[in-house]
Design a protein around this nucleic acid. Structure first.
Lengths: 341, 341
DNA sequence: TTGAAAGCGCTAACAT
DNA sequence: ATGTTAGCGCTTTCAA
């Protein structure tokens, strides 16, 4: 199990091109970088050899050499690639990065803090130009340190406390409020909330909105009706079971994210319960297939693609001008009315 | 919009550690790499400074220097991150990579060949140890060249023609056959097929299975009932519309992948049609929320996580032993019976 | 046990 | 217009 790397598959370097073209490596480099100070004839000659040899510049060498110029590499650190919300965010980032000639290193830490730390370290030592990250919590020391060090960073979905950083987030409290408000207006009385990981700021903000909406409608707050999970499908399944097993089960459930919603739906369907007659449900996060769910899901839509896009734009602007004042973009959510409540 | 990189956020290098510890950089390097030939006292002294300075080795320099040793970096090139199937595959790869101390560069080309080429180039010039890729088609020249060059590669989901390469795929023909066979047995007569991108081998293999199943049941082949899309949600929507608008619409639809299934469902629901009474549907690719769809979806399940896991294992084995004979792993699919047909 | 130095592929400053 | 060279941070002989 050694590094038996007689493997060394051949790489064409500047040197080879230079030799074959009968010029210096500097000239080849100039041709590659479209430096105008090259004699047209020389340029042609060199370009020919480049083609022949299929020369491709080595990004690693470039990055090392240019430690303080642009490497055109961005890092993306997201909590859960299985959550379609983050996939959508990633798509937004990707499109902007592609347009601006940035390559991306995408790291998924699956809500695992240890993994997150590892990836953060790796990214840092890859000499990236900047990164977009959804920190585990708002006191994520590793990310805070990176910001303080001066690495261009934009936070998405979740902010950071005690440090000035660009962020693109969503009106979680309002979104949750509108959801629970809608439930209450529709006459539901025992409204439950299944939360994602409570250390995630958005989870708490959504809980806040939930509480405020109950209060606004004079509905009592029953601690039994609030359940804390880990933001994943399985916890949606399990916590929904707990809720339904309650002596006085809820008549409606507000689920804290995508995956939890899907988990809760699974439980409800397994029990043969009817939505919304037996239990109503409203989810945070819309999915493009919400209409095909049983029944079509009413949900709070976050503009995920937009979040990613804006974040990437912010990041690139910051990279180009590290001194610009930080901005905090707060996007609106939208209540998608369908028939699950 | 220049590279105004006075940005240069500080990086601690071997040099600094060496200086502060009063040893040579070679010694620090030895300590970092747990080389036993260091005096215990020296080791301690150096380790202390490393901690103090929070020194982190620069992966870029390491890769450049060790062009022919291991870089512990793998590339993953997938066609569509919005397809939950690939996300699942990616998760499998990720877990294995993590266990084996490999970092991952993930590239999503969104079924865009130009993007795929770009990413392939980037990966190559990042001096990765190897990569896992789902090529656009089986004559993907770029990937073939890379294989020929000797870069360790494992193909997933789709193979390559004319070159010896490790691959992990699925029994597409069989899977499709079982789906359509099930439809026919259930009495459906006009069975349509919505295909993904026809240049993708799996699309054609699934069509093959479809045709064989029709033949096996003595059902006529109606070219009108075969539609070719681009493997994405939108084409599922559109092609399903076309199908339903036919003078003699199908009584059942076999959808070529995940996203197409979701698109077709959307169309059917928008038209207020009942599944399976008005049209039945069976999908290639299962989703963990299939049970929560309306109605619970009958589908051909691919062991996606397993595919990724096996592929990553193959790749690491190949990296460790480039001379090992190539293998072609063909995993089985499973028909998940629910109530959409 | 430790250090000096070469060199990975590249860019940019400087020299010609 | 072109070439020479230093150096990015690291590992690895080779010498001491």
């Amino acid at each position: 199990m050694k590094n038996s790397n007689e493997n060394v598959y051949k790489i064409v370097s500047l040197n080879e091109v230079a030799e074959k073209a009968g010029v210096s490596i500097a000239t080849v480099s100039r041709v590659m970088n479209e430096n105008p100070k090259v004699h047209p004839e020389t340029r042609l000659k060199v370009q020919k050899v480049i083609k022949e040899l299929k020369y491709q510049p080595n990004r690693v060498a470039k990055r090392l050499r240019n430690r303080n110029a642009s490497s055109n590499l961005l890092g993306v650190v997201i909590p859960d690639i299985q959550n379609p919300f983050y996939v959508e965010v990633f798509r937004g980032i990707e499109d902007v990065a592609y347009e601006n000639q940035y390559a991306l290193i995408m790291c998924n830490f699956s809500q695992d803090e240890k993994k997150e730390k590892l990836y953060l370290d790796i990214l840092q030592s890859e000499s990236i130009d900047g990164m977009i990250v959804a920190p585990t919590d708002e006191r994520d020391q590793k990310v805070i340190d990176l910001v303080k060090k001066g690495l261009p960073i934009v936070c998405v979905d979740r902010g950071l406390i005690g440090v000035d950083v660009d962020e693109v987030v969503v009106e979680n409290r309002n979104g949750a409020f509108s959801a629970v408000d809608h439930l209450a207006r529709s006459g539901y009385q025992r409204i439950a909330y299944i939360s994602g990981l409570p250390q995630i700021p958005s989870s708490r903000q959504r809980e806040q909105g939930y509480r405020e909406a109950l209060a606004a409608h004079g509905l009592p707050l029953d601690q039994d009706l609030i359940r804390y999970g880990d933001s994943r499908h399985e916890s949606g399944v399990k916590l929904c079971e707990e809720l339904l097993d309650l002596p006085k089960p809820p008549d409606a459930i507000f689920t804290g994210n995508n995956l939890i919603t899907l988990g809760a739906l699974e439980t409800i369907h397994k029990r043969g319960l009817h939505i919304p007659r037996d239990v109503a449900i409203i989810g945070f996060d819309d999915m493009y297939w919400s209409i095909s769910l049983n029944p079509p899901l009413t949900a709070v839509r976050q503009p995920a693609y937009e979040i990613g896009k804006r974040a990437a734009e912010q990041l690139i602007m910051r990279i180009n001008d590290p001194t610009r004042p930080t901005v905090s973009m707060i996007l609106k959510t939208e209540l998608m009315l369908r028939s699950s409540c």
